[in-house]
Amino acid sequence: AGATRFATNFLNLQSLHKHRQALKELFVGDVWHSNKKLSTSPVGQKVQEDVLSISFWNSVETCMKVSLPLLRVLRIVDGDEKPAMPEVMAAMDYAKERIKAAIDDKPTLVKKVIKIVEDKWESQMGVKLYGAALFLNPNRIYGLKAKPEKARYCQRLRHMFNEVLLHMEPDDDKASVISRLADDYERGEGECFSSKLAINDRTKKSPRKLLQL
């Protein structure tokens, strides 16, 4: 329901922007001004002021630029084939990058919008699981680690994995063993992760499909 409502609001905004010229012409025409009941009412005057305002249409365009990346995430989540958790996590991060790029000329607004998005995202109960799942997806994590600018992000994913590990494995000794294996996995070292076969399979095997075997 939330996804549908968000999409409907975006489509309404998109339609409004598409027909902006016709709306402007409506509020400067004789038909509008001859209807004294509407044109002279406080609400009517406010609507006329907004429709004829440049700042109003600039705000509409900004809302569309910010909403579109998030709408794409909702399409992924609400699609016929449910995505794996790492895909959702990656989609959200990509959406934030697109939002920043879309309104990079408005740094104050960027901070405000990203904070709203992150607060909503962080409030989700499974956010640490999403991060841990992304960390455990070799198709994703090794690509991220190859980019120096993603170093802090990869550290954050590892931190999420550690927190999930501590929650799911109460035995400290077993958790330490798993953590050491995770070190090998993260660095691509050890017998399991450094072999040619393991390296070749990084982008070929889906963790989701493996779990269904």
Rank of each mutant, 00 (worst) to 15 (best):
R140G: 00
A182I: 11
G126F: 13
G131Q: 05
G126T: 02
Y130A: 09
Q155I: 03
C154D: 09
P138G: 09
W121C: 08
Q155V: 10
G143K: 01
M168A: 15
S123M: 05
I116P: 01
E122Y: 12
R152D: 13
G126I: 06
V117R: 01
D172E: 11
Y130G: 02
F135Q: 00
F161R: 02
K145H: 06
E149I: 06
L181H: 10
K145I: 04
R180A: 12
D183P: 07
E163C: 13
F135M: 01
I178L: 08
P148G: 10
H159E: 12
E169I: 14
G126H: 08
G131Y: 05
V177Q: 13
V117D: 03
V127K: 06
L166H: 12
Y130V: 03
K145L: 11
V164T: 15
Y153P: 10
K147G: 02
A175I: 13
P148A: 09
I116A: 07
L144M: 06
Y130T: 07
G188E: 14
A151T: 12
M125W: 07
D172P: 03
V117S: 14
Q155T: 14
Y142L: 02
Q124D: 12
H167F: 15
L134I: 04
A132S: 14
R152P: 04
D119P: 03
E118W: 07
G131N: 06
I116Q: 14
M160H: 15
E169S: 02
I141S: 00
P170S: 11
H159L: 11
F135S: 01
R140N: 00
R152V: 06
R187H: 07
L129M: 06
Y185R: 03
K145W: 00
